[in-house]
């Protein structure tokens, strides 16, 4: 492109330097923590020099090798982090599937209805989307105690689905708007019911939108701390509240490394997700921005 070739060398250098600093700022904390999670605490939180974390001086002295799995063993085996991982899997998968099922139905209806109430529902959803989750949680706790449904996974799943709905509705609504009305109308002329047209004609062309929205539902369920930490009993905790509870109990015993290992373990699925779905995540944010 002609614009690119005319850029002076100094400006180019400036741009590259800026990007290099940003890339380091974005990636280094992760790299550092992953590296440090294989060391002992005296190295990762070294009072003498951070160079010890790189060489693993103390790790060598304490375990006989420059890398140790002690943190991971402590978190996953001793403190049963695997239970939390399974709970997270159950919660996020259920939240994603249920959100998408009821969200596609609702989003489709909103996109195809020209009536005033459809607009009002979208506005209400926008307001709900802005509600801080923790304020809603303080509304749930007492009723849930009274109904005796506090502390279990299904309650949390339903709550997360509901909190997720406003966003899901908006996003799917804008995806459905981009599919021409003629498509379902001609299917209905051919004898389909509304639901058949939705399931057999619209959904097959909607897959990209559904997958993108699903990714964000997944992220919401996975990243949540406010809801899961308040609504789950200790034995049902998912990964994020479990990590938070590590901080309270483990820091005193000098085993911060369990928490570091748990944090790294919880980050890995997100890395994989971005690796495979980078395009969808980017396009999803853009779609929300451009249309919503």
């Amino acid at each position: 492109m002609s614009v690119a070739t005319r850029r002076p060398a100094a400006l180019n250098a400036l741009i590259l330097a800026f990007l290099a600093i940003w890339v380091i700022a974005a990636a280094f904390p992760f790299a550092w923590t992953v590296w440090g999670s294989f060391k002992v605490e005296a190295d990762f939180f070294s009072r003498q020099s951070w160079w010890m974390a790189i060489e693993g001086t103390r790790t060598q002295a304490q375990t006989g090798s420059a890398f140790t799995l002690a943190g991971y063993e402590g978190a996953w085996v001793q403190n049963e982090f695997w239970k939390a991982a399974i709970n997270t899997l159950i919660v996020t998968v259920s939240v994603t599937l249920i959100s998408l099922t009821i969200g596609t139905l609702g989003g489709y209806a909103l996109a195809r209805s020209g009536y005033r109430y459809a607009f009002w529902i979208l506005i209400a959803a926008l307001i709900f989307r802005a509600m801080p989750h923790i304020t809603l949680v303080s509304g749930y706790m007492l009723p849930f105690f009274q109904l005796n449904i506090w502390g279990v996974l299904p309650t949390t799943i339903i709550v997360l689905v509901a909190i997720n709905q406003p966003f899901t509705l908006w996003m799917l609504h804008s995806f459905f708007l981009s599919i021409p009305k003629d498509l379902d109308e001609s299917a209905m002329v051919d004898g389909c019911t509304r639901f058949q047209a939705f399931r057999m004609v619209i959904i097959p062309v909607m897959w990209p939108g559904v997958i993108t929205t699903g990714l964000f539902s997944f992220l919401l369920g996975y990243n949540d701390f406010a809801v899961t930490s308040m609504l789950l009993a200790q034995e049902n905790q998912t990964m994020v509240p479990k990590i938070a509870s590590f901080l309270g109990s483990i820091q005193n015993e000098g085993n911060v490394m369990f928490a570091v290992a748990a944090v790294v373990s919880a980050t890995v699925p997100l890395f994989i997700l971005v690796l495979f779905f980078q395009r969808q995540i980017v396009s999803g944010l853009t779609a929300g921005a451009v249309k919503g």
């Binding site: 709900f128 509901a162 406003p166």
Partner: peptide
């Protein structure tokens, strides 16, 4: 279903 979820839990 969407409305029900939002009314009940929001």
């Amino acid at each position: 279903p969407s409305i029900l979820a939002m009314v009940l839990f929001i």
